[in-house]
């Protein structure tokens, strides 16, 4: 491509004198200052811990485990989520539930949030709507790494009941 010649505008006398331009700049900043100090604020800052922004519906936040109608954990410890997890941060120990249609349940269910990349593959992989990431919260800060490894209890804490049918014929 050929060289582009940029036409430079000659400065007018008022601009060359600089002082009128300084005054113009001062007017702009002063107007903004007065507006923010006394009028309607243009400030976009949200005072985070006191005021929280509502995240959009599809925000992938901290995981939660859903429960059945009878309050038991819905997860059947099929390991699909931990297999799908690219970060290998889901650790499940399966136990025998002793039921006829649903055989297993997780004795322990741990997610290491420091390793998790919040890709959402786990909730995609889950065949029975047992793990969800729609809590709308992001992980809280903590003073130790262990605290970031959340367990079944915490995962169930803000869990919801899922009404999808599970177990038995046709599912």
């Amino acid at each position: 491509m050929a060289t582009v010649q940029v036409e430079r505008r000659e400065l007018t006398l008022a601009e060359k004198l600089y002082i009128p331009e300084v005054v113009r700049g001062l007017v702009v900043t002063t107007r903004q200052m007065l507006k923010n100090a006394f009028g309607k604020k243009d400030v976009a800052t949200i005072q985070y811990p006191e005021v929280k922004k509502v995240y959009p519906d599809r925000f992938r936040g901290r995981h939660r485990l859903t429960t059945r109608e009878d309050g038991t954990v819905r997860c059947v410890a099929c390991m699909l989520c931990s297999t799908a997890c690219p970060a290998k941060c889901i650790h499940i120990v399966a136990g025998d539930r002793g039921g006829a249609d649903v055989e297993k349940y997780p004795i322990s269910f741990e997610i290491d949030l420091l390793v998790c990349v919040y890709c959402g593959f786990c909730e995609e992989a889950c065949p029975c709507d047992a793990i969800r990431m729609d809590s709308g919260r992001h992980p809280l800060p903590s003073f130790s790494r262990d605290k970031q490894r959340i367990h079944k209890v915490q995962l169930l804490e803000d869990g919801v009941r899922s009404i999808a049918r599970q177990g038995g014929e046709g599912t």
Binding site: T29, Q32, M33, N36, A37, K41, D42, V43, A44, T45, Q47
Partner: peptide, 13 residues
């Protein structure tokens, strides 16, 4: 505080 008001910030609070 003044610069914050000029630049649409909150400033130390």
């Amino acid at each position: 505080k003044q610069s914050a008001a000029m630049q649409n910030r909150v400033g130390p609070n």
